[in-house]
């Protein structure tokens, strides 16, 4: 589903050029559960932005389900993010003034889905992550783990083939973090491709494959036997 060929990303900071990715190549197949690991400054955030179609590579190719991402316009990228990718962030990134239902329905608004359908789907997605009782709570009224579940429900709402999670347990305690990882496993078993970016070995070990980055280069790509 994803082919990454010799990916480079250079930032122009004033007069200095900083290479965050210096040529990374790998493929990810449908239904994989991959962890991308590396210390801070390794380029894993940059890689995640490109994989999530939030950014374009400076050099190299990235094919997502056959689309050459570097050749698409901003609006086409927005459409791919909307339909094919579900994001889960470390900071949750929920809109504070809206309740869970309204946060979850946002991606459907940008697909021009009817209001009644949106709310129905949002409710189903929240039930899928075990939040059927928290539909009308605002982010400030629920716990960290529940916030992350709302975010996962939002990522699921368009039934994307790829779920991209950037340090999804970074702001959670271990127990809650494990619960969140469990949800990812369930989703993986239901056929979603999952990519988790993390710097924690604990988390990475729960994936089936770990890609390691250091200083903008890939330094490891190993398949771990089985998931939890």
């Amino acid at each position: 589903m994803m082919q990454i060929e010799n990916l480079e990303r250079v930032y122009h900071l004033g007069k200095a050029n900083v290479a965050a990715l210096k040529g990374v190549s790998f493929n990810i197949e449908d239904g994989e559960f991959v962890a991308i690991m590396g210390p801070s400054g390794s380029g894993k955030s940059t890689l995640m932005h490109i994989l999530g179609c939030l950014d374009r590579p400076t050099q190299g190719r990235y094919y997502l389900e056959g689309h050459d991402i570097s050749k698409l316009s901003d609006n086409q990228l927005a459409e791919i993010r909307n339909k094919n990718i579900g994001f889960v962030f470390q900071q949750f990134n929920l809109l504070p003034r809206m309740n869970s239902l309204h946060n979850v329905e946002i991606p459907l608004i940008y697909r021009h889905t009817r209001r009644s359908t949106r709310l129905e789907k949002a409710k189903k997605a929240l039930e899928r992550v075990g939040l059927g009782e928290r539909l009308h709570h605002k982010p400030s009224e629920v716990s960290g783990g529940e916030k992350q579940r709302v975010a996962i429900a939002r990522a699921l709402i368009n039934d994307p083939s790829l779920i991209l999670a950037d340090e999804p347990t970074g702001n959670l305690d271990t127990r809650t973090g494990n619960e969140i990882m469990k949800i990812f496993h369930n989703l993986n078993q239901q056929g979603h491709t999952i990519i988790v970016v993390t710097h924690e070995n604990e988390i990475a070990r729960q994936a089936r494959r770990v890609i390691r980055l250091r200083d903008g280069l890939m330094v490891g790509d190993e398949v771990i036997g089985s998931a939890v």
């Binding site: 999530g52 901003d74 927005a78 459409e79 909307n82």
Partner: peptide, 16 residues
């Protein structure tokens, strides 16, 4: 700004 970023990540186009 952050809200704009979130909305864009979730598929909002420029026109939206």
């Amino acid at each position: 700004t952050r809200e704009i970023g979130i909305r864009k990540a979730l598929g909002a186009k420029k026109a939206h």
